[in-house]
Each structure stands twice: as structure tokens, then as C-alpha cells.
Design a binder for these strands. Structure first.
Lengths: 152, 152
DNA sequence: GTGATTGCAAAAATTTTGCAAATTC
DNA sequence: GAATTTGCAAAATTTTTGCAATCAC
């Protein structure tokens, strides 16, 4: 499922990522760079242990991976996935994450259609009124079978 | 959008649930009955600790709640949700439809509100017409800051 | 009675944290 | 030089498991 979400094309340049760190007034350290490299090269949800294993032998501590992942998530660079086995996984997000939008993904071929408009602003306002929750955000993903795949 | 929040009334009759246990050749025990009662009365994703706390004082062991929840999941009676705080939650599934609905999760305390109606059936139809995709499904999750956390 | 189920306690596994030393800016 | 970040070890959680006692059928 995670693979279906992935957009084709190269991942974000490392420079952009370190830039995001600096914007957040965080330091660009060896471990953080290395972790970002791993995430760039393996674009699927990785557990922290997997990330550690993909780093040069003994390069950094598991605790550092945990801390870095928290940071990257706060900065919006990474998205967390819970697959249902009690282990958190993280995946690098695509560049356009500030421009909020949704995707429609084919479950067969993973072709992606971007949905430009955000469909849920009105719903969000209503929901906030009814629930008392504030600062609402949402994450919406559609899947289906694309026209091409329907013919096969 | 009148009533977004799930009505808290009991759902599936208890008899139907114990029936499912028997069909699975599992025994109907006190702890299992009590856990099912709790799930029937609180129809939102509950952690195992929450379930235990909602049972009569000292009524059963946390390990039993874990084991029961595994069983109920294998039997398809409950659905597991991972909200992103490292704690698994379970919710009773509805008999009739697939149990599809959405959640509103507090980003601070992970408290969950179930949203009874599916907001996107109409959107899905529109989207299907415009994109040509078929058999659409979606996953939608709202997050926000719950009223309690707003005060802290 | 037989076999599944429970409680208890102990173990596993994941994640977080305190603090001195090292690193980045 | 100041402040953040790291490693290490220890702690805190969440979840699982072994086993004798108990319970459902």
C-alpha cells in the first residue's frame, strides 16, 4: 500500500532537506545527513531499526535514529506509517507537501492522479464546530482502478 | 452535517457476538463477555488499558484483554487502529456495512472521536466520473487539538 | 473429564530519557 | 564559545509468553 502511494521520479535533493533543517534552526549533523540519505535511497516506510541497519556499521546509535525521526517528522520531512505490527515506520515525503492536495492512486499499476482542489475545507470547519477540536488537519488518500487497468 | 459524532448507543446484540465466538469454537467466558460489553458501550477505538479501566475493578488481567483482543480480531469482530502514538486501539465492527467510517484524533493526547457518517461517498462518485477510475476506496483521518488539551 | 482460558509474574520488544562528552555554528 | 546533538546506559512503555490453577463445555 505504501508503495502505491509513491510518486515516480527522483526524491528531493539532499540540499533541500538540509535547508529545511536550517530553517527549523536545527543543526546539520553527520547522523542526520546519513539518515536522510537512507530515506532518500529507500522510498518506502522504514522502521528505525531498518534505518540503523542501512547505515554504515556502527555509524550512529538507535536512540539517535529515534530522535532524528521525531525531528524530521516535526519538520514535516517525513511521514509516519503504522502498518499494524506495533512498529512505527517512516518515509520521506515529497517536495510539494506544503501545497496541500490529495491523490488518487491506482491499486493495480500505482499510477497517480493529483487532485488539485482540497475537498474538505468546509467539512473541516463544520467538524471543528461540532467536535470542539481545533487546528484541524486531514490526510486523505483515494485508491481505485485506473482506466487502463480496467481493460486488462 | 447534523450529527457527525457517532451515537453512543449499543450496537450489535451481545448474542450475535457470543454466537461468533461459538462459531469459532471458542468459549464464552466472563472476561470475554465483559470486554465485549465495554466495546459495545464505547464505540470508538479503545486501547487495551482503557478497556481494562472500563471493566469492574480488578475484574480481569491486562494480559487477558490483550489475548481477547487478538481473538476478537481474528474472528473479525473488532478492527485495529493505529493512531500514531504507539498504542494499538480496537473498535467493534458493525454487523451490516463494512464498518467504514472516519476518525478525528487529537495530536496532543491521541484521544479519538469516531465520525459516524462517511463524508465522501458523493465525492467518490464525482471523482470516479471525472477520472475514470473505478472501485474507489479512501482513507481519511482528521487530526486536531481536543477541547481538553486546548485548556492545558 | 478434557481442553481452553485465566492470572500472575517474568520476559521481550519498542521507545524515551538523563547526562557527560562531542559536535555544529 | 554557546548551544545543540550524540552515545551510552538505564528507564519507561507496550505487548507477549510460560505455567499452574481455574473454568466452560
Amino acid at each position: 500500500m505504501a508503495d502505491l502511494r509513491r510518486k515516480t521520479g527522483p526524491s528531493r535533493p539532499l540540499g533541500e532537506l538540509t535547508e529545511a533543517l536550517r530553517r527549523g534552526e536545527r543543526r546539520v549533523t553527520g547522523p542526520r545527513l546519513a539518515i536522510l540519505q537512507v530515506l532518500r535511497e529507500h522510498r518506502r516506510p522504514l522502521s528505525n531499526k531498518e534505518v540503523l541497519a542501512l547505515l554504515p556499521q556502527g555509524y550512529c546509535d538507535l536512540a539517535t535514529v529515534y530522535r532524528s525521526m521525531h525531528l524530521l517528522r516535526r519538520l514535516g520531512l517525513v511521514q509516519r506509517f503504522d502498518v499494524g505490527d506495533g512498529v512505527a515506520r517512516h518515509e520521506l515525503r515529497d517536495a510539494g507537501h506544503d501545497g496541500h492536495h490529495h491523490h488518487l492512486v491506482c491499486r493495480r499499476c500505482a499510477q497517480v492522479v493529483a487532485i488539485d482542489c482540497c475537498l474538505l475545507e468546509e467539512v473541516e470547519r463544520e467538524l471543528s464546530r461540532h467536535s470542539g477540536y481545533q487546528a484541524l488537519q486531514h490526510r486523505l488518500e483515494f485508491t481505485g482502478i485506473c482506466p487502463d487497468c480496467q481493460q486488462r
